[in-house]
């Protein structure tokens, strides 16, 4: 596989969808993917996805982890961590294990976290009558 120049930015990148091409259909990558151009359909990888601020993705996305800075229209399913940068515009539902969202990012959709941690009912004590009256 190619090495050299792109290793300066990200190690082990297998596919780069640059700004001079458009990809249509169900794209399935084996490794890490950088999107700087257009993709329509679906995108699936068992590696890392980086959608840069010039990217335009109209597709459902499935990846191990991702960093989103561009525009995405479609549902996103991430196995581990999703990092949403301040320039990101996401129109679609998100399902991920962990997420970080930068100030300025736009997300229009539901966010569902698949975390092992849940709120235990016992930890939340019911309010007393006095507390209710005070309110």
């Amino acid at each position: 596989m190619f090495k050299e120049k792109k290793e300066e930015t990200i190690e082990g990148v297998d596919t780069i969808i640059g700004p001079s091409v458009s990809v249509d259909g169900n794209f399935k990558g084996e490794g890490n993917i950088i999107v700087e151009g257009e993709l329509r359909g679906s995108l699936k990888t068992n590696g890392f996805l980086k959608a840069s601020d010039s990217s335009l993705i109209v597709a459902t996305i499935s990846a191990d982890s991702a960093e989103i800075s561009g525009q995405i229209s479609g549902n996103i399913k991430i196995k581990n961590n999703l990092d949403v940068k301040e320039t990101a515009v996401i129109e679609g539902d998100i399902e991920t294990k962990t997420i970080s969202i930068a100030y300025g990012a736009i997300i229009n959709g539901n966010v569902k976290m698949k975390s092992e941690r849940v709120i235990k009912k016992d930890d939340v004590a019911p309010a007393t009558e006095e507390e209710i009256e005070e309110k």
Binding site: M1, F2, K3, E4, K5, P19, S20, V21, S22, V23, D24, G25, N26, F27, K28, G37, G41
Partner: peptide, 29 residues
């Protein structure tokens, strides 16, 4: 088959490399 790649107007060249004899900045194994 499952997907296709089309170059846009701003694209200049499309190549497939097994070995890149010229490329100091890009090597294909």
């Amino acid at each position: 088959g499952d997907y296709s790649i089309s170059p846009k107007k701003n694209n200049k060249s499309c190549d497939i490399y097994n070995i890149n004899p010229m490329g100091a900045d890009f090597k294909s194994n």
